[in-house]
Design a binder for these strands. Sequence first.
DNA 1: AAATTAATTGGAAACGGTTTCATATTTGTT
DNA 2: AACAAATATGAAACCGTTTCCAATTAATTT
Lengths: 337, 337
Amino acid sequence: MATIEDVAKYAGLSRTTVSRVINNQPYVCDEKRERVFHAMQELGYVPNSSARRLRNQKTETIAIVLPRITNPFYSKLVEVMEKKASWWGYQVIICQTYHCAQKELHYLELLRKKQVDGLVMVAIQNEWTKVEEYIHAGPIVICNESIEEANTVIVGIDQQQAAYDATVHLIEQGCRRLAFISGEENSNLVQARYTGYMKALQEHHIPSMDDPIFHEAVDVESGQTILGKVVHMNNRIDGIFAGCDEVAAGIVYAAMKQGIRVPEDLAVVGFHNDTISRLMNPAITTIEVPIVEMAEKSIEQLIRSIEQPLRNKRESYQFAHTLLKRDSTNKRITVPM
Amino acid sequence: MATIEDVAKYAGLSRTTVSRVINNQPYVCDEKRERVFHAMQELGYVPNSSARRLRNQKTETIAIVLPRITNPFYSKLVEVMEKKASWWGYQVIICQTYHCAQKELHYLELLRKKQVDGLVMVAIQNEWTKVEEYIHAGPIVICNESIEEANTVIVGIDQQQAAYDATVHLIEQGCRRLAFISGEENSNLVQARYTGYMKALQEHHIPSMDDPIFHEAVDVESGQTILGKVVHMNNRIDGIFAGCDEVAAGIVYAAMKQGIRVPEDLAVVGFHNDTISRLMNPAITTIEVPIVEMAEKSIEQLIRSIEQPLRNKRESYQFAHTLLKRDSTNKRITVPM
DNA sequence: AAATTAATTGGAAACGGTTTCATATTTGTT
DNA sequence: AACAAATATGAAACCGTTTCCAATTAATTT
């Protein structure tokens, strides 16, 4: 590969001058500028990224840390983030944790190694205090997680309110034996939603029927499994709040297979308004999340933090969610409260 | 940030010795090794990635070029690829082309800038001759595309045979007025499938009914749109081969909405065996593609090419596909041929 | 015409590591 | 005891850029 030195020699000039041409700087006369262009052309020269990164102390790369890309909600977030980042001239490294705290720390090290300029966390596996230490190594934006104590940019929706809205809707449709189904139990996200869920139950004087078997659900298969368990319980559950549409779809699918009517016997609410929630039969009631706005805001703020660092200040951007009422909860009755 | 120089000073040793410790090399006595560890600990030292990349002429990063990550087929490929790459200690940069040849070239430049050590192409937007030029800048593995003339590693399935199998199945189910629906018309992938589709038609003496409106279909929405157009045609189509399950799902969904019975009035075959094809009602007949094997093989071969370069040699890995017969084509009749 | 100021240019010093090479000290062998 | 071989260490070169600084020339002002 040709280096800047080769170009300089070929053009009979110095590295400095070539560098000026590459970076479109002034103080190079037209004739020499032309000569440099010609030499670059002739030698097929392309500036070496590693050398630039070292010299400029800047990688123009960011990382997105998430559980796994196959979850449609995450993949949509990543799609938009990559698009936006690319528009600003940044590359995107994708980091799948598979919900493993260890893996998450491994990827956070990218910040200390200076392999990325900044990082977006979509979901968080470790204690915040552990993640926090990395902020002095580079900006971190939190997207879609609720960390009260985080002194950084945090983008998302009101998870508690969303869960509350969904639960109230189930209750208004006549459900009285509800279940709360979620992904990893310990995340702050799940905690916030659970709080909203419980608030709705308490306000309507409905007892909780939760059970630990209902956690760790993140995909269609786990949704199907859960329905199997629900069926064999004594008190038949008649309403489910699921943490994501994949799980909700698995539940609805398994229910139909087993002759359990949705919503008559069992109403289901999902989360995220993934394509599948719309296409299922019955269509699944869900919480619509403004993914595009969240993703764009996250990247904008991250890049701003990179380009003009002023760290350690909490900055919260909260977007509005919407409850999309569909057939999976439509019992066509309204129970007087 | 502390540099290796700082560590050396703190430990009262030379950069060389510190470097030896970092890289776990011999010829450092235990006592000094300890001192270096202590100094690194004390200063919170982490080796700078850019400096390492420059000196070692190696980035330990690869790129995956694809149309868009939200397509479940691509996102699954990426999931597995990232997992595998990470296992080998490589980072993954994701590059979305949105089917734009220009964008693809932009990402191919990563190879020339030495910002990545190698690159996997899932789908290809440019002429192969244009892409080929980048091979001398670093290894490229083609995954899921059929480029006859490519002298590089190419991983995939027999697209032509898969389309042939799907089409024969439609014909055996009694369909006589078929349509072929695909993504970007000019890709070699689509050409290969189209050849298989036509071969099946010809072997069964069935006239082709194709129409240009049936291209450029890549998601659920376009599937829905297409069904709308199909309905208004004179010769009612009774069988559709769709290039991906998202499109097939859109078609099935829209058909049900309009009272067109699937499969009685219209049979549909999809591609990829995405989750949605299984969950739709009726479930969609599809071609199962061994995604995990393809993704793993692609990464394995790419990393092999990076670590022991021996370029410009075609190496083809073809995996077996399966036709999964489901309800969207199950007319419960067998027409004698 | 002399004194400033602006426009060009290149040498050399970073940026932060790894590796080659030379040197000094042990250890092992005959 | 003499010599070869293995171990331990650091100085300096190198990876490919960008940028500071000084030097030279051209243009402008007094």
